[in-house]
Structures are given as structure tokens and as C-alpha cells.
Amino acid sequence: MVLESQQLVNAQGEALTVDQAISNLRQTADPSLRYYAAWWLGRFRVRDGAAIAALVEALKDETDRAPDGGYPLRRNAARALGKLGDRTVVPALMGCLSCPDYYVREAAIQALEMLGDDVCVPALRAMLAGGIEAATQVEGKPHLVQPYNAILEALGSLGARAAVEEVAPFLDHPVPQVQNAAARAMYQLTGDAAYCNRLVQVLQGPNLQLRRSAMMDLGAVGYLPAAGAIAATLAENSLKLIALQGVLEHHLQATDFPESSLSSEARQVMALMDDLL
């Protein structure tokens, strides 16, 4: 796009070049420069060999440590690698699945989902071992023992049909967000609309956070019959528009737009979107 060069300017108005970003990432004196460079390379989709090598290196960083023992740079490096579309980094990301930092594991799983290589499926299934009984809260932390939402969503997106029996029990996990993630995955793995209808039910519920997450799940899987319910749920128009964009684009792809003309369903979804602008 014409605006590409403007987008290369960061929030403070400072421009980075690819070479600067890579050298910022490689130095170790200033952790904040490294952290920012890792984000920047992902944000601007820098698919340069040297950038990818530096990001893979950063997945093993020991110098940038959070007060809780976490690895902030590793998290950002994993997120960036997910955006760069280079599957040669899959083994390095899979190495992060046993990182002691929950958020590194979560970022790595999301990156693996984006890269779309199903070689990671057995490793993801192994992370569901013990089922919902093992999927408990970590004492003193705001999260469960594994990033179950990310695991379930990745298994769904990767079409891991062999994992259906391991995913299904999570429909009954006590944490509603995990139930949503399981429903979304089960729909992707089985095509059974009943799972999406569970998410549509959540849209009528009293909890805003859950309505938001169900809406984004329905958008992510592109469940067309939910379009009206998404438009009507009580939540921000900005999020409804993103969810409806997901529904619309899924349908456009299925109906072979722009080679074929617009379907009446596509027009209906756009009419809903027009009213939310």
C-alpha cells in the first residue's frame, strides 16, 4: 500500500530501519531496545533471513528476565516469528513449548497456529495430558497450568481431527473462556453447528468479557449464521466489526469472491456492518 512507508514510523515518531532493528535485537546492553526491535520486526513483517535468525536466537535469551522469572524478550520474539510466515522456525518454536514461562509457551503456540504447520500437533496434544482434572489454576498466578485456550484454538485451526477426544472434555472445564475455546475448536474439527450455537448462547449472557470472547471466536471460525447475533450483542462496535469481518471473509472465500459475484448472505453481513460504523 501507499502508506507502507508511513507505517514504518513507530509510536514515538522515530523511524527504525531493518538493519537498525536487527542490530538493536542483537545487542544485549539495552533490553528495552531488544524488546521493541523484536516487536517491530513482526509488526512490519520483516521476512529477512538475518531478522529471522536474530529472532530465533532471542527465543533462547537468558538476559531479559521479568521480576516473576519470565522471559519478556522470548515472548515478543515468538509473537514476531508467528507473523513472518517462515516455517523453518517451527522446531525452534516447538522448543519453547517446555519453557517454564507460561506466556512464552502461549506466544509460541499462537505463533505455531499462525504458521499453520501441523507437525506441532502431537506436541500440542501432549500439553492436554491429564484432561480437565490436570487443567487447574497455578497457585498465586492468574493463569492455569497450561495456556489451554491457545492450545485448543491451535488444534482447531490446524485441523487436528485426531485430537477430538482430547479436546471435547474441555467443553466442561470450569473456566468459561476455556469452554469457548473448546467449542470453537470442536466446530472446526467436526463441522457440527451445535458447538457454534453454544457460543451464540454466550452472546446473550450477562458477562461482557465472555460475550467479547465468544464473538471473536465466532468471527475467527467464520460462522455465518451468527452474524445477526454478533451485531445485536451488547459490546463495542469496533469488536463486532472485526468479528463480522471474519464471518464475511470466511464466506467470501467459500463463495470464491471476487471471481464469483457477491452472494445475498454476503450483502446481508455487510448491511449489518454498515450500521455499526
Binding site: E249, L252, F257, A266, M273
Partner: peptide, 19 residues
């Protein structure tokens, strides 16, 4: 927009307007 926009939803909306 129909020819060059990078986002299918935007392309589709422009097509709907042209239709």
C-alpha cells in the same frame, strides 16, 4: 478498491456499491 485493496471485506463492500 475492488482491484487493489488488501482486505477482502473492503473489496466486497466496494463491489456491492458498484453493483
Amino acid at each position: 478498491v475492488v482491484k487493489h485493496d488488501s482486505v477482502p471485506a473492503v473489496q466486497a463492500r466496494a463491489q456491492m456499491a458498484l453493483d
